[in-house]
């Protein structure tokens, strides 16, 4: 009787075991959450390192090659006497700081190949967000070195990727990334708005003046006018209708657009 029970348990557990093994034998693809870390401007080094450490072992998929076997250099240990990556990174490439080198190693990994390894590492921007990459840089810097990544780096990277996201051609230099400014005045200057509009007395009176525009128009109307300038003309500027290009919806990032709209709407 006992033998019969054991056999039954054996068959049940064995069948389950075979299915489990089978499902584990195939390469594993996890569906990661896009962009799941986001840091403020005053992010602390320890926050970044902690987040980076988590990524290193999980979503980053780094340990699949770094640290196991012989596919890639081990980053956390000495790797033949040079010290861990936080020490090594400073003198890997002359002229590049540790931070710059590590960032480049992640977004364009095959530029500076470590001798003796094949170029198998992917561009990490494909699977990680900008903030995640910087968190990893911070974590790797912390391996024997000092964390120099700051909120400014992250923000800069974020704007770069935001402006290049639509063209995705940074490397080829075919399409120039739009300005990454966030200050509304810089944006207005950078996009040659003052060629037709007047701000603080400077500019040309081809379109409605920006001075006092907030008392005449609502924020929604301003936004609509930027995105779809041909929809209608302000009083007195009917002759200029159609002159303003309808490109700013694509040229500005959402954040830039909002900054400009809010800036203008508040100029009463």
């Amino acid at each position: 009787m006992l033998a019969e029970h054991l056999k039954i348990i054996g068959v049940v557990v064995g069948t389950i075991g075979i299915f489990t093994l089978l499902a584990n034998a195939i390469p594993q693809v996890q569906s990661e959450v896009p962009l799941d870390v986001s840091f403020g401007a005053d992010v602390s080094a320890s926050e970044l390192t902690a987040s980076g450490e988590l990524l290193f072992g999980s979503a980053g998929g780094c340990t699949a090659c770094h640290g196991l076997g012989t596919r890639a250099p081990n980053l956390l240990t000495g790797n033949g006497g040079d010290g861990p990556i936080g020490v090594r990174c400073n003198n890997r490439v002359p002229g590049e700081s540790c931070k710059e080198y590590l960032y480049l190693a992640m977004v364009d990994p095959n530029v500076y190949m470590v001798e003796g390894y094949s170029p198998i590492m992917p561009d990490m921007r494909r699977s990680l967000s900008n903030d995640q990459i910087w968190a990893l840089v911070a974590y790797l810097e912390a391996q024997g070195g000092e964390v120099t990544v700051t909120g400014a780096d992250i923000n800069q990277g974020r704007e770069d990727s935001a402006s290049s996201a639509s063209t995705a051609t940074v490397d080829n230099g075919v399409a120039a990334p739009a300005s990454s400014a966030t200050d509304p005045v810089d944006i207005l200057n950078g996009n040659a708005c003052l060629g037709c509009h007047i701000l603080n007395g400077t500019g040309a009176p081809i379109g409605p003046s920006f001075d006092g525009i907030g008392s005449r128009l609502t924020a929604d109307y301003i936004r609509e006018s930027i995105l779809d300038p041909g929809a209608g003309a302000s009083e007195g500027f009917e002759a200029s209708l159609g002159l303003m290009p309808a490109i700013y919806g694509n040229q500005l990032t959402a954040q830039q657009l909002e900054n400009v709209v809010m800036f203008l709407a508040n100029r009463r």
Binding site: V12, V13, I16, G17, F19, T20, L22, A23, N24, I26, Q28, V29, Q30, S31, E32, V33, D36, A59
Partner: peptide, 21 residues
């Protein structure tokens, strides 16, 4: 929030099936 890979899912499923049986 990430959706786990099949192998991990299989282990959880096996756990459920064992609990059930």
């Amino acid at each position: 929030a990430a959706t786990p890979a099949l192998g991990y899912a299989a282990i959880v499923i096996s756990g459920c099936v064992l609990i059930f049986f």
